[in-house]
Nucleic acid binder design. Structure first.
Lengths: 223, 223
DNA sequence: AGTGGACTGTTCTCTTTTGCACAGCTTTGG
DNA sequence: CCAAAGCTGTGCAAAAGAGAACAGTCCACT
């Protein structure tokens, strides 16, 4: 019983896990979330893998002292919560929608089973994991090397990419300085300090929305 | 032409990619490295994936200013250098043997091909990637939350695990304070400061070798 | 329109971290 | 056996960052 959705999942088209899982008969369900709504919470039992269809998701972790760090952001075609497939029985962080979001929820055991039998899906999943891995390693290297000023610059550039491509300027969703601080791994007063510095230098503008001048801000990364 | 090495690669035994790749007819070669010998260098063309059979490998990255950070350590059964499978054309870091090491070098294209056709191998590889991912994310969270003192404590504990299991004390390979600094993401003077502090408190001992009192040092992690 | 809540701009103090410098100890290689 | 190179133990001044506090602004909701 081969999947017949060649249009979507053929060699040259975009691969769509949903279409695929449909035809492979995998139990999955679709969930909708409003802005700021929680998808799962740190400590919950972990039995499913999430696939983002629409919207955006913020994955954060809190430590013993209640401090929060944003570990990753996810957008359409991203998987997350896949730690459960490697034996994690509880969620290591909290996932929340940052915009109205549609999630495909896939049972962990079923996904493992299908990954074993279906080549196209496992190829796709491996590609995703490899790419995700590279991204997390870049974040780690960034933390190891750079000052909070550079990390903030990099974070802003990554968020800007969320919007569109590489025109000189870009707008990005409403993100508070508090949130930026927990993405960068510093305090809000630092973020505020650098945001104003960047603004004075014309690297960014902001009133309610933030506008990033990519080419100018990139300079910060290279000293 | 199914692989027949059930003993090694069956459901219950340990999965050995080498045995597997042999039977799957994948071009791979075995390379030996002496202590400190370079396996590949940041900027090299990236066309193969490494599998550690024996020994230990240190993966480090240098930034524009020549500062070095150790991003990961690998031991037997670990893969590394797999970034090339996700489109990285050059090595993003430098890999070097920390002890005499035996590496299975697998051509990237061939591995991709075999991952597509061979379920057991792709299952194994996915498991490895998931686990590795978790580890890197933990490192990132550690960097985001913790002071260099805690990070050093954690690094020492991870290195100690390298030796054996969870007896109160453990020895680990010769690692200079300089190297520790680049693993923790701080300076040697900081490392020196904390090492002496830990020693005074009896958390560790050292003359030439370092001995870690796991249970005591663990306390540092929880304040 | 008025109130409470969330976010920003700003300032100040206290800690941590860096970056250097230099002296003593070991190890390594001739 | 000696010299050079590499580590370690210090100490210290300067920079970066944390943390807390408080007033002002903007919004949403009643």
């Amino acid at each position: 019983m081969k999947p017949k959705n060649h249009k979507k999942n053929g060699k040259n088209g975009p691969f769509d896990p949903q279409v695929f899982l449909d035809t492979a008969g995998v139990s999955r369900k679709i969930a909708e979330y409003r802005r700021n709504e929680s998808i799962y919470t740190q400590g919950d039992a972990a039995e499913s893998v999430m696939y983002v269809q629409k919207g955006g998701v913020k994955l954060s972790v809190v430590n013993g002292s209640g401090r929060e760090a944003v570990v990753a952001m996810f957008g359409p075609t991203d998987f997350f919560g896949e730690g459960c497939m490697a034996g994690q029985t509880v969620r290591m962080g909290t996932a929340a929608a940052v915009t109205p979001t549609t999630i495909l929820v896939i049972d962990k055991k079923e996904l493992l089973r299908v990954l074993h039998t279906e080549h196209n899906l496992s190829d796709h999943f491996i590609r995703y994991m490899l790419a995700h891995n590279i991204r997390v390693e870049e974040d780690l290297v960034d933390q190891l090397f750079n000052s909070s000023e550079k990390r903030l610059a990099r974070t802003l550039l990554l968020l800007a990419r969320y919007g569109k491509q590489d025109q000189p300027v870009r707008i990005l969703p409403k993100v508070s300085q508090e949130t930026l601080a927990s993405m960068v791994g510093t305090t809000r007063s630092r973020v505020n300090f650098f945001m104003n510095k960047f603004r004075k230098l014309g690297f960014i503008e902001y009133n309610g929305k933030i506008t990033v001048n990519k080419s100018l801000l990139t300079v910060v990364l290279h000293e």
